[in-house]
Design a protein around this nucleic acid. Structure first.
Lengths: 166, 166
DNA sequence: GTAGAAAAGTCAACATGGCTGACGTAAAAA
DNA sequence: TTTTTACGTCAGCCATGTTGACTTTTCTAC
């Protein structure tokens, strides 16, 4: 009976709370990508290049099909961006040993440089937010975000042992 | 002295932890927008239309310049999208009372319908993640995301009383 | 009351980065 | 040997961002 008071208009609160989450994600993501976007624009690149550079840096020797799986875009879309990065010497390709049809991707020194710049801009922002929020909040942040991710990709975070993308 | 042990390779852990955050944000945001994107595509709209519909729904009577401030895009970009939404009867315009130069924006019934569909898709995803994570994690999620947002916009979340965008 | 600033809109041109569809080549797998 | 797979390419379309220039209406300050 005493509980009833606490439940005053729970639908409104829930709705507000959830809408706030949508906005936090919108504004948060917008600002999260703002600084890399500026750095990339200087080099004539866009956000698509960033994603490629990031994941190739994170998984050296990544095959093209794996990268397509991560990004969930078409190979034609990827090829435009990847082609530029290879041409301009940010990414190198070599045939796979076990499967020579594959072109395994790696960052060159130049690519690694750019990757570090871009990642630094974002990690610094996140590090500030993490420090300000505290360890417990960080855990909560990770838990909730993980819950937004589709199950298949989620596994890679829960089981970081096998970092592969099929 | 005893602290030293705890600090074994703190740089590596920090780097990994921060990179994980970048990826959580990337995958989380990607999946967060996936369902609305599909709904919108059916109507020939895109994510830009979603943002306009969302913020007009959230702030009925919003002026165009305020919307531009929220979205941080040019008025030419907005005008294309907004023009379609007005033309197709999702959004209505009326002159401001105090300032008749303004065109205050509001959702029509049709617009409200679509807004509800889109928001429902996202709030359901977030609600699932919130339920699975628990109240404490939700607080942490909000705190960290808030920390990613630039100070000016952040105020609007901390002080929800005045929901205006100058 | 007039000058200037502000709110909104418009036209034009361009870039990025998604998409589909069709087709080609080399290598692996059946 | 046939079929499938990994990768690439050409061509064209669409959505959504940009800059720059210009107009109209209305408000504000002097």
């Amino acid at each position: 009976m005493a509980d009833v008071k606490i439940q005053v208009n729970p639908l409104f609160l829930r709705e507000e709370e959830l809408r706030q989450a949508l906005e936090l994600l919108f504004f948060g993501y917008r600002d999260f990508t703002a600084e890399p976007d500026r750095l990339l624009a200087e080099k004539g690149f866009g956000r698509a290049h960033h994603r490629v550079i990031y994941f190739v840096g994170r998984h050296p020797g990544l095959a093209v099909s794996h990268l397509l799986g991560i990004l969930k875009i078409t190979k034609q879309s990827l090829s435009r961006v990847l082609g530029q990065l290879v041409e301009e010497g940010y990414i190198s390709q070599r045939p796979g040993e076990r499967d020579r049809r594959q072109r395994l991707l790696e960052l060159t020194d130049k690519g690694r440089d750019l990757e570090r710049q871009l990642t630094a801009a974002q990690t610094e922002l996140v590090a500030r937010a993490y420090r300000a929020a505290g360890a417990e909040a960080v855990e909560g942040f990770r838990t909730v975000l993980l819950g937004l991710i589709n199950e298949k990709d989620r596994e890679r975070f829960l089981d970081p042992g096998r970092g592969s993308f099929e």
